[in-house]
Design a protein around this nucleic acid. Structure first.
Lengths: 323, 323
DNA sequence: AAATATGTTGTAAACGATTTCATTAAAATT
DNA sequence: AATTTTAATGAAATCGTTTACAACATATTT
């Protein structure tokens, strides 16, 4: 592969002159410059980013670290981040890393956005620095060089509860995700405390644990329906739309009607929710804006601004036919 | 940031000894090794990937280059690629690059998988080499260092046509995507030629051009319905599911029934299709397998095997309620 | 005891760029 | 014509690693 040295040799100049020419410095005569540029083109010179960034101690790359790519959730967020990153003249790379997190640890990136439960607080705490600011989207973790951008999960759940109570429901069940999820647990918390605010009792037996997948929602709801016989809540709130869809399937299989017999509210407003039958009432989250906010926050930190609070995100209740 | 030099100094050894120790060479005594390892831990040493890869002339990173992140299509494919890449001990980065394609051009990656119409054949041709093999998913482009993994689009369309003809349809319309899409055009081609195989005539006026989005499908179909008055095909094949959903919306708005008045078949079998009302007949494409095949192909090439044909992918007709 | 083999560590040259500083040539000033 | 100023280029250090090779110490063989 052709290097700058080769270009210089072909153009009959020194390496430094070649470098200056290619980077458009105005120290160099137009004549020399064009000599170099032509030589570069002739041998198909492409700069080596590794060498360049090693020297510059900067990669102009931002990393988005996810735990995986599946889930109907990420794409809008990625777009949001990408928009900002591109506007700032950086590159964005998306990685699904489970153990080594090499690109982050070995300093391939100038900054990182994290939505990855495989990366524990300790790791992030030890990596974050003035030179490597981090934005986390999946936990509450304070550190001078780490900022959180979190969804107002509790508010979201509260909106669902209020809506159902207004509709006259007095016994509301809940399908929770796995306990490790920060978002999941705050959604549950918001649900419970809003019930309390309204003086509505919650039966511990009406709390169903699943793991955020459609299938788990279906299976756990089926078991629940069996177990409870006909002693059922008149509404269920689900920690996400996928489980709501599974839940709906289980309910419909027993011959019960949605929302007639059991009303359903999900969370996330994923793309399918409005096409589902019945269309799903849910909490809309601003996915793309989540991404842009994360990215702008990161760039502020890269700019040396470390002492500020990112503006909060908002969620909205979408009432459809399932409630 | 602590470097190997710092570690060496603290451990009282030379840089090379430190390097060997950290990389677990068996040239070094256990005693020295542990001295170095402790020193490294003490000052929080993390290797610099740039320096390492510069020296090694190899990054162990594979790049997936997309034109963007939206579309319900990519996630499964990314998972497929990621699985393979991880198993091979590499990292995968996903980039949505529109102009500079820096990570590819400046040799951050050892290999690339491309699904990005922003990257033209000339660019890819000039980049691909023994040291940088490329797999393209969105075009037919032959080059010693570039392999294509393409969906059997024509076969897919043919399956739809056969299905509709079996159902007794004799006039079938088509909603095409934009003409720049390789997949799109081969789907159209497959559709037309299968009609011909069965001796079924196609009216040029029954060809609708949209741009793959739900909205474009809706708008163009609405115009079509207006224009044609009641002179309509009894079935439509759509180049993808999203347009099929838009088309369905347009049809239903005029009071016509699906599939009673107009039957509909899509392409892709995206996640929503089975939840849509009516559930959408479509062509299922093996998205995840597409990814794994692309990645295994790439790794074969990285292994120096350049003279082989990747096994073909298969598609399946999924008959649901729209036809 | 001398010669050789073995094991362990250090020296220094890469990798491919950027950039400081020195050098030279040409132009401007005296 | 001698000096100073300015402009253009080159030499060499640097970024943080890896690794071929040299160097040395110790253990083994004669």
């Amino acid at each position: 592969m052709a290097t700058l040295k080769d270009v210089a040799k072909l153009a009959g100049v020194s390496v430094s002159t070649a470098s200056y020419s290619i980077n458009g410095s105005n120290l160099i005569t137009e004549e020399t410059k064009s000599k170099v540029l032509h030589a570069a083109k002739e041998i198909g010179y492409r700069p080596n980013g590794l060498a360049k960034n090693l020297k510059e101690q900067k990669t102009n790359i931002i990393g988005l670290f996810l735990s995986g790519f599946t889930g109907p959730f990420f794409n809008d967020m990625m777009e949001g981040i990408q928009d900002v990153v591109m506007k700032m003249g950086y590159e964005m790379v998306v990685c699904a890393s489970v153990d080594k997190h090499r690109l982050l640890v070995e300093r391939y990136v100038d900054g990182a956005i994290i939505l990855n439960y495989h990366m524990d607080d300790e790791l992030l705490g030890s990596l974050a620095s003035e030179k490597l600011p981090i934005v986390v989207l999946d936990r509450n973790f304070k550190n001078p060089f780490i900022k959180n951008i979190l969804l107002p999960n509790q508010l979201g759940s509260a909106l669902s509860v209020r809506h159902l109570i207004e509709k006259g429901h007095t016994r509301i069940g809940y399908i929770a995700g796995s306990e490790e999820s920060y978002d999941g647990e705050s959604r549950l918390k918001g649900f419970l405390s809003e019930l309390q605010n309204h003086g509505v009792a919650f039966l511990d037996t009406d709390l169903i644990r699943a793991d955020f997948t459609e299938l788990s929602g279906y299976l756990e709801m089926s078991r629940f329906l069996n177990r409870q016989n006909n002693d059922l809540p008149s509404a269920m709130v689900c920690a996400n739309d996928e489980m709501a869809m599974g839940t709906a399937r289980a309910i419909q299989e027993t011959g019960l009607q949605i929302p007639g017999d059991i009303a359903l509210v999900g969370f996330d407003d994923i793309y399918v929710s409005k096409y589902f039958t019945p269309s799903l009432s849910t909490i809309e989250v601003p996915r793309k804006q989540w991404g842009t906010l994360a990215a702008t926050t990161l760039f502020k930190m890269l700019d040396g601004q470390l002492d500020f609070e990112p503006e909060p995100l908002t969620v909205k209740l979408k009432v459809r036919n399932s409630s």
